[in-house]
């Protein structure tokens, strides 16, 4: 009995030492080395791809944001709008609605979003694309589809007193195809597009 207790003790102490030494290797050295390389070689990306405007940080090109009117809850017609978000684009609270594809609550949300998007942009409901009425997985989707961007061009142009041609050109400049031509889906980055629209509107 005594020897088996002693053997178990010896085994547990070996296990504990193994865990400690592997914690140093995998939990301290590894992340620090990767951080060193990342900060040296890809400084901007490693720190969150932060975007600046007028000399201050206004967001990350990878993290979506809400484009409501100043201090209000209503969408701002001057800006391209992103997808619905389960957390109102709060990065402290990522994640989706988690509602099933037949859930009555989700049906209600989709119906409401469709009407809102159609009315806001002055287009028939049948033209509203799927990404405009569904929440993303992260609630932080930085991108919309080409269709949803195209749908918003007239409204954004009118609100900013720009020609639709100018806005359409800005959309195509900020459209990225599939990575390497076939991976994922084409995207329009909403933050970068809105910054470009804002610059164009300021120039008049």
């Amino acid at each position: 009995m005594n020897t088996s207790v002693r053997n178990t003790g010896r085994l547990l102490s070996a296990a504990f030492r193994a865990l400690l030494v592997l914690t140093v290797v995998c939990g301290v050295i590894y992340p620090l080395v990767i951080t060193g390389i990342a900060q040296g070689a890809f400084h901007d990306k490693a720190n969150g791809s932060v975007v600046k405007a007028d000399g201050r940080d206004v967001g990350s090109r990878l993290i979506g944001q809400s484009w409501n009117e100043r201090g209000g809850r209503k969408p701002d017609p001057k800006y391209f709008q992103g997808r619905p978000s389960a957390s109102d684009y709060d990065p402290r609270n990522s994640g989706s609605s988690q509602l099933g594809a037949s859930d009555p609550k989700l049906v209600g949300m989709v119906r409401k979003a469709r009407k809102q998007v159609a009315d806001f942009n002055g287009v028939p409901q049948s033209r509203v694309p799927k990404d405009a009425v569904t929440g993303s997985a992260s609630a932080l989707d930085p991108a919309i589809s080409k269709k949803y961007a195209a749908l918003q061009v007239d409204r954004v142009a009118r609100a900013n007193r720009l020609s639709t041609g100018t806005v359409r050109r800005l959309v195509s400049e900020h459209t990225a195809g599939r990575t390497l031509g076939f991976l994922g889906e084409p995207t329009v980055n909403v933050l970068e597009l809105n910054l470009a629209v804002r610059r164009a509107a300021a120039r008049g």
């Binding site: 509602l99 119906r111 469709r114 694309p129 799927k130 929440g135 989707d141």
Partner: peptide, 15 residues
């Protein structure tokens, strides 16, 4: 819900 939205994009990222 997916039929109404025109695609199964709820809980999926655009990219």
């Amino acid at each position: 819900a997916a039929q109404l939205a025109g695609g199964a994009m709820e809980g999926k990222e655009q990219r």
